[in-house]
Design a protein around this nucleic acid. Structure first.
Ligand SMILES: [Mn+2]
Ligand SMILES: [Mn+2]
Ligand SMILES: [Mn+2]
Ligand SMILES: [Mn+2]
Lengths: 220, 220
DNA sequence: CCCGCCATTTTGAGTAGTCAAAATAATTTC
DNA sequence: GAAATTATTTTGACTACTCAAAATGGCGGG
């Protein structure tokens, strides 16, 4: 059975692959795992020896089919646990990522199935992140973000791709939750600033970086 | 924060202390943890250096106050998780020990408190094992067992102190659950056999060892 | 074409936990 | 009161991970 360390390497690799498509640079993985680059090189070589990743020296890493399968399993656990923590235990959505980071390695497949059933087989977690199916299918659509969507048009928030508790608390404070509707009234590339209008709310200023973490679809 | 290994050493030490009172022999710990005796000696010395246990060479180990505090925390997690798995996820009581063995190390105190509240602050787990309080109080009464209780008198089962899935399945099969009532009709020390009568059931033969794992109190 | 910068890899070393097998104590047994 | 048996400890070695710091390689600018 893969160790906690291996599971974390694979899961982060899967997450990074979503935004990096192609090879994930060693530095990115090193940053995501909060480990020095030399450690990543060593570990990646050993993962490659186990057939879980492909390593192109000086270029990057990517998951093999086997590695991806494992990673999807861990991600499924992570997101179902988050959903459970919010829906059943009524925890705040800004706290559950940290908890799930541990629990994802301790939950058996049997427990996971029960949890899944209890929650009614949800397709997304509290942040709008898609939950991989039991068979390892990941429904990850490409969405616009508050940084890229058309101006003035009403949009519905579908997903917040940013785990930090501070950001999530800030977002909730201003009603920026999955399902909420909004409208980008102004976007100033030079200043790196986006202005968002919420129904019955003051205009809200966001950095371009922050806006890029909020995925949206056209409303209605 | 203590590692998973340390938590397991301490928890098992606490459990063994209940039956061994005084010093727990190294061999007992070694058997409980499924680790070679030399490993236990090494680890115990390092636990002793951290002030979590007292080691009397060639005699045994026992928890210090600090070690006991930690162990009680782990045990509380274990038993609350078991209760959750049975009551909320409807798992079988014979399967939950193994699951809790992992989860006890991954659950934070915040999640534990929520779980505790959700379950209505239970005082015992599905096996009748007492759940340590948040402050580390363990309500562990001394009970008679089917191997020691008076003959012919009706008793109520309060606790099954045996984790093995096979035993628990067998017990349930014959209605030997916490809360059930029964009567010991015969006890043959020579043959090491106990005969138990359940209301509306055939007489059931148990080994003395098995009977000793079933704790009872006088009915009514 | 060469220089320097930056990412990556190597090297050397350390921690935590484990086992196998030999050495040592403590208890029984005779 | 030895000798034999059994429990415990020591020793030496190994795996999995990690870091610090030095070496290396690939570019991009000149
Ligand atoms: Mn994790
Ligand atoms: Mn999430
Ligand atoms: Mn455990
Ligand atoms: Mn129990």
């Amino acid at each position: 059975m893969p160790s906690v360390t291996v599971e974390n390497y694979l899961k982060h690799l899967l997450l990074l692959a979503e935004e990096t498509d192609g090879l994930v640079p060693m530095g990115a993985l090193s940053a995501a795992l909060a480990v020095v680059p030399g450690t990543v090189t060593t570990m990646v070589k050993s993962l490659a020896a186990d057939g879980l990743v492909v390593h192109r020296p000086r270029q990057g890493v990517k998951l093999t089919a086997a590695g991806r399968r494992l990673a999807l399993g861990v991600l499924r656990k992570h997101r179902l646990v988050e959903t459970f923590l919010v829906q059943v235990l009524k925890m705040h959505w800004s706290a559950v990522n940290a908890e799930a980071e541990q629990l994802e390695h301790a939950i058996s497949d049997t427990v996971l199935d029960r949890l899944d059933a209890l929650l009614g087989h949800p397709s997304t977690d509290p942040h709008g992140d898609p939950i991989p199916s039991r068979l390892g299918k990941l429904h990850s659509q490409v969405y616009a973000t508050l940084a890229t969507c058309p101006l003035a048009r009403p949009v519905r928030l579908v997903r917040i791709t940013e785990q930090s508790a501070e950001f999530l608390q800030f977002a909730e404070q201003h009603g920026l939750l999955p399902g909420a509707s909004a409208r980008v009234t102004d976007r100033n590339l030079a200043a790196g600033l986006v202005t968002v209008q919420r129904p019955r709310g003051r205009p809200l200023a966001l950095s371009l970086a922050a806006a890029g973490r909020i995925l949206v679809e056209p409303a209605r």
